[in-house]
C-alpha cells in the first residue's frame, strides 16, 4: 500500500532523513518511534506530499507522490503534528469544508460529517468556533478531518499528544478498531502506545531506521528479555546468588534483599534460552525448598530497547 524507498531529506547541510526504506501492507498498523528530532514528522510530511524529498521515492497505493500527487493524496487522511485547523470556523464548518475538499457533496457530505462527529465525540462542540475549544477538542477536530472521506490510509503524527488519559485511551481504541480495515502509520514517543495498537513498529534515530519488527520482536532485543525474576523468603542473599549462578543456562545473576525477602534476577546465558532457564530455576527452588512468592519470565521492555538503540535527543530543532 505504501512503499518508501531510500528516502533522503536535507535541510541545508543537515540530513533529517537519511536513507529510510520500508513498506506497509494493508491491515498493518505501523508505529513510528523515535526521539524528538529523529525525522518522524519529516518522513510523514514527505509521504503525505507536503514536502518533496531530496531523493528517494514514495508510492501510495501505486501512485507516486511526486508524479501523481492528487491520486495519492485522495487515498490518505492526514493528521499533522500540531493538529492545525482554521480557528475562525466552527467545528461543523471546518468539517464541511474538509468534506468538500475531499469531493463529497450533498447527502454524502452530511453523512460524512455526522459519522466523524460521532467517531470523535464532537457533538457537544459542533457549533462552537474552533478557537474557543480546549486542546483535546481541537485535536479531535483535526483527527475528524483526517477521517472525513473514510480513507484507506491514515497518517497520524502524534495522534495522542496533548490528550488526557481517557482521551488517549479512546484514540488508541479508535486506531486499533480502524486498523483492522485500514493502513495506519502513526508516530509517537509513548512506548505503551506501540504495544497497545501496532502490528509493527519502526524505530528511527537521526534519520535512519534502527529497528523494524513486531512489538514482540523488538522487545526480544532487550537485554532483559527471557530473564527470570524470583522472590524468596528466609534464605540468605549469598546462598541464592551462588545457587543460581551454578545453573548451566544462567548468565548474569543479581540478587538483593528487600525487607525480609530476597529478590533475584537471572539472565539467560544466550538469547532464546528463556524457557529452559525458567524451568531450571523452578527446579532449584523446589529442590532447595525455598518459599517463594514470585517467579516469572520477563518479555523484555520496549523502553530498554528504545534507550539502547537510540541516542539521547541531540537535535535542537523539532523536525
Amino acid at each position: 500500500m505504501i512503499t518508501v524507498e531510500n528516502l533522503v531529506k536535507e535541510f541545508g547541510t543537515k540530513r533529517a532523513v537519511d536513507g529510510v526504506s520500508f513498506e506497509v501492507k494493508p491491515g498493518e498498523v505501523l508505529g513510528f518511534l523515535g526521539p524528538n528530532g529523529a525525522g518522524k514528522s519529516t518522513t510523514m510530511r514527505i509521504i503525505t506530499g507536503f514536502m518533496p524529498a531530496t531523493s528517494g521515492r514514495v508510492t501510495v497505493g501505486g501512485h507516486d507522490i511526486v508524479e501523481d500527487p492528487i491520486a495519492a493524496k485522495r487515498l490518505m487522511g492526514y493528521l499533522p503534528e500540531s493538529a492545525p485547523s482554521y480557528s475562525d470556523m466552527t467545528v461543523h464548518g471546518f468539517l464541511n469544508w474538509a468534506a468538500e475538499m475531499r469531493g463529497l457533496s450533498g447527502g454524502a457530505r452530511q453523512d460524512a460529517v455526522q459519522r466523524v462527529t460521532n467517531l470523535c465525540f464532537l457533538e457537544n462542540v459542533l457549533h462552537q468556533s474552533v478557537d474557543t475549544l480546549s486542546k483535546g477538542y481541537r485535536h479531535r477536530t483535526c483527527l475528524a478531518q483526517s477521517l472525513i472521506h473514510d480513507p484507506q490510509i491514515l497518517i497520524l503524527d502524534e495522534p495522542t499528544d496533548g490528550l488526557d488519559p481517557n482521551q488517549k485511551f479512546e484514540v488508541r481504541q479508535l486506531i486499533r478498531r480502524m486498523g483492522e480495515k485500514k493502513v495506519i502509520i502513526f508516530s509517537t514517543h509513548i512506548l505503551e502506545e506501540v504495544e497497545a495498537c501496532c502490528s509493527r513498529a519502526i524505530i528511527i534515530d537521526r534519520g535512519r531506521i534502527v529497528a523494524n519488527g513486531t512489538p514482540a520482536q523488538l522487545k526480544a532485543k532487550s537485554e532483559l528479555a527471557g530473564s527470570v525474576t524470583l522472590r524468596v523468603h528466609g534464605v540468605a542473599v549469598e546462598q541464592v546468588r551462588a545457587r543460581l549462578a551454578q545453573l548451566g543456562v544462567a548468565g548474569k545473576v543479581t540478587a538483593q534483599t528487600e525487607g525480609s525477602m530476597v529478590s533475584a534476577r537471572v539472565q539467560p546465558r544466550e538469547r532464546g534460552q528463556g524457557a529452559d532457564l525458567a524451568s531450571a530455576v523452578a527446579d532449584v527452588v523446589s529442590k532447595e525448598g525455598w518459599r517463594f512468592d514470585a517467579l516469572e519470565t520477563e518479555e523484555g521492555r520496549l523502553d530498554d530497547v528504545f534507550r539502547s538503540i537510540t541516542r539521547p535527543d541531540t537535535a535542537g530543532s523539532n523536525a
Binding site: 507536503f50 492528487i70 499533522p80 492545525p84 475538499m101 475531499r102 469531493g103
Partner: peptide, 13 residues
C-alpha cells in the same frame, strides 16, 4: 497556524 500543511495535503493542485 500550520494549516498550510493541511491545505496542501488535500487532493488539490
Amino acid at each position: 497556524s500550520g494549516t498550510l500543511e493541511l491545505l496542501l495535503t488535500m487532493p488539490i493542485a
